[in-house]
Simulated scan of single mutants.
Amino acid sequence: MRTARRLFAAVALAGAALLGPAAPAGLADTATPTPSGSAGGAAAEAGPTEAGTSFRTAAFFRQEQQATAQAATGDYLYWAFPADTGQRPTVTATVTLPEASLRHGASAWRIDVYDGLRRRQPCVYGMQSRTAAKEAATVELSCTLRPVRSAADAWSNDPLPGSYFVRLTVTSLPEEDSGQPFSVRVGATSRDLGGAYATDGALAVPLVPGATDPKAVEARAPEDGWSSGWWSDRWLWTAAGGVLAALAGLAGYTLTRGSGRPAHVPPSA
């Protein structure tokens, strides 16, 4: 029985050592939806200072950068940024409105996010549409997407690695306010979920519209490049499960073997 206790202790210690580093990835989805990086931080890297007017002319920026633009109220503005496997991107936009004395009423603003196939992706957190009162100076919008998967069925509409498009527009305002100048700051950050949302398989190439040359695809990649899609912390969980199963089997064998021995009978006087 002493040997069995030692084996069970070894199983517990092995589980704590092997599962400890991988546990945060599995718990990431239950944490607060706000990403660890701040899109409006002082250390944020500067991005483009103009926006595109269509998907084809979208201004490219990388996560943690700040893209800015000045436009006229009523224009559609487009940006694009890369998102990779295991990331859950959050897009933020801060619109600085025209002076209140020049406006005639409230206005409603909206951001939409599309993947590389130009499929609109739903927001699981955030306020992607807001109404700004006539006296408001700014309006802040945000959209947190679902986790990006390495592969998915065509009908699932799941986010896949590649370029993501951000579109900003005003959806409602007094007719007299159309064409007034405004400015906007857009950024994107991600929470890395690791193997919690990893899937088998991977795309041949990330979904980067208009980029057929591998060099062009890499030019639109995240700062540290596209991931291969095969590694995730699921490997740690698999290895830990194998070790624990082996130790549990050894412990069970020892207990069974010990219980089968005849009880010790002291010699008679």
Rank of each mutant, 00 (worst) to 15 (best):
163 S>Q: 09
227 S>T: 06
216 A>D: 05
225 G>W: 10
267 P>Y: 14
144 T>H: 00
125 Y>N: 05
75 D>F: 02
267 P>K: 13
208 V>K: 05
191 R>H: 09
233 D>R: 15
132 A>S: 11
150 S>F: 07
227 S>A: 10
262 P>K: 02
42 A>K: 03
224 D>Q: 02
97 L>D: 02
178 S>T: 03
157 N>E: 13
233 D>A: 10
190 S>F: 12
213 D>K: 02
175 E>V: 12
118 R>L: 04
152 A>H: 01
102 L>M: 03
223 E>F: 12
118 R>F: 07
269 A>H: 02
135 E>Q: 04
142 S>G: 06
26 G>P: 06
74 G>W: 11
208 V>Y: 13
147 P>S: 01
242 G>N: 05
164 Y>C: 08
162 G>S: 12
45 E>I: 08
29 D>L: 08
149 R>Q: 14
226 W>L: 07
55 F>W: 14
212 T>H: 09
256 T>P: 02
42 A>C: 12
27 L>G: 04
158 D>L: 13
196 A>W: 06
142 S>Y: 00
114 Y>L: 04
225 G>V: 06
117 L>C: 11
63 Q>V: 02
135 E>R: 12
225 G>N: 06
43 A>Q: 08
228 S>I: 01
268 S>Q: 07
190 S>I: 00
231 W>G: 07
7 L>W: 15
221 A>L: 02
164 Y>D: 12
101 S>Q: 11
145 L>R: 13
27 L>K: 13
93 A>N: 08
250 L>R: 05
158 D>A: 15
143 C>V: 00
165 F>A: 08
63 Q>T: 12
148 V>L: 15
66 Q>D: 10
161 P>Y: 04
102 L>T: 14
49 T>M: 05
82 P>D: 09
52 G>T: 13
185 R>W: 01
143 C>A: 14
123 C>Y: 00
4 A>I: 01
143 C>L: 00
259 S>K: 12
24 P>S: 03
76 Y>E: 02
162 G>F: 12
89 P>I: 02
129 S>K: 15
58 A>G: 05
163 S>V: 05
161 P>N: 03
214 P>W: 15
68 T>I: 06
156 S>L: 07
